[in-house]
Write a protein that binds this DNA or RNA. Structure first.
Lengths: 212, 212
DNA sequence: TCTTCTAACATACAGTCTGTATGGAACAGG
DNA sequence: CCTGTTCCATACAGACTGTATGTTAGAAGA
């Protein structure tokens, strides 16, 4: 994990440049996939936006789906990092009991899902492009683990009733995803946000051990 | 609505034949879309399976997406009919209170969603192929209405707490869809079914007015 | 019955897109 | 200085979609 500075001539310009083109491809693809969707976005459009040629694309990525996988991985990771940062900050400031903390976490999750790139790329296109198994593996790696360990802790602390973690995690994530899509689709985002939050809150009370 | 038997020569053979080719196209497309997905299925594959040519396809449908829309509409309608039949039958035989009836209905919904064609075509490919708005319109027409009116009745009867119907309907449908996908993906379907059903049951208790 | 018209296809073609194969330029290493 | 490898540009082949055109069988009118 330490930087190898003996053999390498302190970050060669070459490597820096290639990393640039790769990032340019990822950024361009992310924007276009989010705007027009996967199939409606040609590889020519992507490389034009990144100011390279198709040769660069197929040098860095196996094929178009591989590029999409990388883009979706970035999206998921960004989302995960954002959430972790936000929740750890909250956990330090306002330390309530585990149950209210978890409930607030879900509402934050709902707000965080309201990101067009994330919705289109991860939630809508992802399953169809990569197939359910590959999609699930990616989400498992980046997002589910956090939610799952949070839920496990809540169960251990007795905040919520014991339940199988696997289906619980996926079903809650799906619930929040759908709620975010509902909000995004609504004409009046404000009331939609309030309504969806209310329904989410009600459903979550079913998990609570106390029922409150 | 009465059959026109004066002008028409009692169901022309011609019309019968064209309806046959249309159905053949729909059946073939449904099978292939469910097996390989939308993009991986060429129009040539479809017409070969239906034993017609591409000319027939583009005569009956505007384009490939239009064919998919028709296929998904059939899938959704089949599912809705199956569920309505099943639930009305149960409502007659075992008449419990509205709350238990609704809970049992959700479990039946969960079982009914365990259909490979339905899962792949309606739940996975649908949103990506048609876009969220067109997909939502189709599901609204065929499936959501039933669920929504059932929920409205439950609220009117006081079984569950008053809640905005729109997000509630979509979030519950999404919850059950995800649960069915989880079951289908699991190695051990039996335990997965039991676990998902348990989680679903717990979440639904949050809706109950009594909290039981 | 004969003609005519149109629906219901079949076929051929053009445009687009993806993936690959080839070629070259720059840089590292011996 | 020479060589090999990385990185990328270009050219090409295959596949696929949608459309335009041709063809045939049945319906409709005289």
């Amino acid at each position: 994990m330490t930087a190898p500075r003996s053999t390498r001539s302190l970050r060669s310009r070459r490597a820096e440049h290639t990393a640039d083109t790769r990032r340019a491809l990822l950024r361009a693809a992310r924007t276009l996939f989010a705007e027009r969707g996967y199939t409606a976005t040609g590889t020519e459009d992507i490389v034009a936006a990144a100011q390279v040629t198709r040769g660069a694309l197929y040098h860095h990525f196996k094929d178009k789906a591989d590029l999409f996988r990388a883009v979706m991985g970035d999206c998921a990771q960004d989302m995960a990092e954002r959430l972790v940062e936000q929740e750890t900050a909250r956990a330090e400031s306002e330390s309530g009991d585990a149950w209210t903390l978890l409930r607030h976490g879900f509402q934050s999750f709902l707000d965080a899902c309201n990101d067009p790139d994330f919705q289109r790329i991860v939630l809508v296109e992802g399953p169809a492009v990569l197939g359910h198994s590959a999609w699930d593996a990616l989400v498992e790696e980046h997002g589910y683990v956090l939610l799952a360990e949070e839920l496990t802790r809540a169960i251990d602390e007795g905040s919520i009733s014991p339940m199988p973690i696997g289906p619980l995690t996926r079903m809650l994530a799906s619930l929040i995803s759908e709620a975010s899509l509902y909000i995004a689709r609504a004409e009046d985002h404000v009331t939609a946000r309030k309504e969806a939050g209310e329904v989410l809150e009600r459903l979550l009370t079913g998990l609570s051990r106390t029922g409150a």
